[in-house]
Amino acid sequence: MKKLTIIAILVFCGFANAQITCPTDIKTSGQSTPPSPIFTVPNGQNGCNESWPTSITVNGSLTYNYVSCSGGNLKYEIETGQTPPADYEMTIDFGGGVVCSYNSTGGANTLSLKNEELKLDFKIAPNPTSGVLNVELDHLNEINSLDVYSVSGRKVYTVKENNEINISHLSSGVYILRADTKKGVLNTKIIKK
């Protein structure tokens, strides 16, 4: 009985700590459309058994609702009355810090890792800003590059080996800042005033 209780606790803890990861791509070639994307679910713990969110945000403003997940195919549909993107180039917020970006053919761009998985100290200030963002890391880490992406997943600006980035030339709105550091990649939403 004691062994069964311990196993049950371990299984529960494993499920409690399971985290959604980005689907590997959006199925194209007639299998889905931008209004009804079908994602390829990663194998393993995050398959169709994962608790996918009931709604997701696409390109910062569009709401897509969960339809189904079976056989590794995760399907969402855009809410009625909204205009979908022209192609599969989209950035999707699955919530909980999981932001996924896809190119126009449905292939995944590497934008998202949950920062807490890397156990890195990471601070950006000020956010929102109309000009310069400062990125602070722990003293044992260094910035390789800072990349700014639009909500549609397009890279709009890059700086190398610098802890600050001037975004004064960008239009007002929400962006994703990707910090490639010596210890790993960090991502966060930033707001340009």
Rank of each mutant, 00 (worst) to 15 (best):
144 N>M: 04
109 N>C: 07
143 I>K: 07
123 K>C: 04
109 N>I: 14
124 I>R: 12
67 V>I: 15
145 S>N: 14
146 L>N: 10
57 T>L: 00
171 S>F: 10
161 E>C: 03
146 L>E: 05
79 E>P: 00
149 Y>A: 01
100 C>Y: 01
112 S>E: 07
93 D>R: 05
85 P>K: 13
153 G>P: 02
146 L>I: 15
130 S>W: 02
144 N>A: 10
160 K>Y: 15
77 E>T: 15
98 V>G: 01
75 K>F: 03
59 N>C: 01
60 G>A: 00
72 G>R: 06
69 C>Y: 12
138 D>F: 03
130 S>G: 12
151 V>M: 14
157 Y>A: 14
56 I>G: 01
110 T>D: 13
174 V>L: 13
126 P>A: 10
125 A>C: 06
99 V>S: 05
167 I>R: 13
62 L>E: 00
99 V>K: 08
154 R>S: 12
74 L>C: 03
111 L>V: 13
123 K>R: 11
63 T>R: 11
89 E>S: 12
59 N>D: 08
143 I>R: 09
168 S>D: 05
81 G>A: 04
153 G>A: 06
75 K>S: 06
102 Y>D: 02
90 M>N: 02
141 N>A: 05
77 E>D: 11
88 Y>P: 01
118 L>N: 13
173 G>K: 13
122 F>R: 09
160 K>I: 15
74 L>G: 01
85 P>C: 10
135 V>F: 03
155 K>Y: 07
157 Y>F: 15
68 S>A: 10
152 S>N: 12
120 L>S: 12
67 V>R: 12
146 L>Q: 07
117 E>D: 15
125 A>Q: 14
84 P>V: 09
79 E>C: 02
156 V>C: 08
131 G>F: 03
118 L>V: 14
104 S>W: 04
113 L>E: 12
81 G>Q: 05
177 L>E: 02
164 E>T: 13
56 I>D: 00
140 L>T: 15
57 T>Q: 05
89 E>Y: 09
112 S>K: 04
114 K>E: 08
102 Y>K: 04
78 I>M: 11
109 N>A: 10
134 N>E: 13
117 E>H: 14
156 V>N: 04
176 I>D: 01
104 S>N: 14
140 L>F: 11
124 I>M: 10
176 I>E: 03
169 H>V: 15
124 I>W: 09
86 A>H: 06
99 V>T: 13
167 I>C: 02
177 L>P: 01
158 T>E: 11
124 I>K: 10
166 N>P: 01
